[in-house]
Write a protein that binds this DNA or RNA. Structure first.
Lengths: 199, 199
DNA sequence: CAAAAAATACCGACCGGTCGGTCTGATATT
DNA sequence: AATATCAGACCGACCGGTCGGTATTTTTTG
């Protein structure tokens, strides 16, 4: 294998290991040594690829947000109407829950770190505002296409984001307390009943 | 001052100092030494009143939840109808935001710790389930009194809790991103439009 | 009531251990 | 040979918690 490919692979292993550790133990409780152990690398290798532990964290955050971005955009692109797109996105939550239920706590780590660390804060806030704008644009499009009532788009977007955040948080705190995919579907339907035009 | 009173006072000072530190720097980043400095106590004094740093944290969590409990109950007791009570509680959020905006990050600390620490998890989950039951009971009472449509009470309660959690989180991450009290009011009104009986 | 004893509140130096990060090289690729 | 990729011993700072001791208040006792 070429040196470049090998380096890339090691880098990826470090990222994966770190993600697992952060999710399982939390950021602070995870030592660089433990990440190295799980990645099959030593400290030297680690610090060859990343300047600091925080840099790994930031990279993880960036990747995660990029993935979410892409999936949201794709979902909208292939949906016929806005309400349908919203329902689809809700189904996405269900996938997220069963696919990465172990990875969810890292979401909390992001927020907690963001509240105290300016670098993480910026990296978190910017995409988050994008989401609000994204949903606001969706609602406006829905109003324009006639599938939604002419409500305050900004407010509706904030409500949607609130519900999403709240659901994810409840889901990670109490994974077996409810079928969160079901709850998400039901919640979104309730919201849509209110947003959709009367038939 | 009696010895007992004095001890109680220092204990309180430690609690206050710890709350400030946890909110400002986060749990892990806060050293016991720093808490002691701000409380005007030394390590010896600290460990005289509390067996560990985590015990302080747990006590803080307990106090916070007890306060929330009391306020919610009181709000319901003095409201005439269920929709009115819900609106009142939304206003409560507004108070929380302006009164303890600096203390909000500690809320995140609670959740983050709860995701990894069984002791904190239990202390968090039990009251949280109570809240869900509380709101479910409220919705059912609303249906019984005829002010709410006969919706799925459990689902509605989960939706309400989701919105509340989401709002608090958004508020603490992006305090100046919106007037969160306003957003809370608007969101609750939107939800209620859907839940209330048609007039 | 006074003296002694016990309990309580607090002090601050100190310890064992951990953790993020560095440094000197060894090994493999180009 | 030059460079990228790693190995792993090592460092210094820091942190939660301990411990022996002091000061103050409360209780017991003569």
């Amino acid at each position: 294998m070429s040196a470049q490919r090998r380096g890339e692979a090691t880098r990826e292993r470090i990222l994966q290991a770190a993600q697992g550790c952060f999710a399982r133990y939390g950021y602070d409780a995870t030592g660089v040594a433990e990440i190295c152990r799980q990645a099959g690398v030593t400290k030297g290798g680690f610090y060859h690829h990343f300047p600091s532990k925080q840099a790994v964290f930031l990279q993880l955050l960036e990747n995660w947000l990029a993935g979410l971005d892409a999936r949201l955009q794709a979902t909208w692109d292939q949906a016929a109407t806005v309400p349908e797109a919203l329902l689809q996105m809700t189904g996405m939550i269900r996938q997220v829950f069963q696919a990465a239920s172990g990875q969810l706590p890292i979401f909390l780590e992001f927020w907690t770190k963001a509240a105290h660390d300016p670098a993480v804060w910026q990296a978190t806030l910017a995409p988050y505002r994008r989401y609000r704008a994204f949903f606001a644009a969706m609602v406006e499009a829905g109003i324009a296409e006639g599938s939604l009532r002419p409500v305050d788009a900004e407010l509706a977007a904030q409500l949607i984001v609130s519900v999403a955040v709240g659901l994810v948080l409840q889901g990670l705190l109490d994974p077996h307390g409810a079928d969160w995919g079901q709850v998400a579907q039901g919640s979104m339907r309730m919201l849509l009943e209110n947003l959709k035009v009367e038939r």
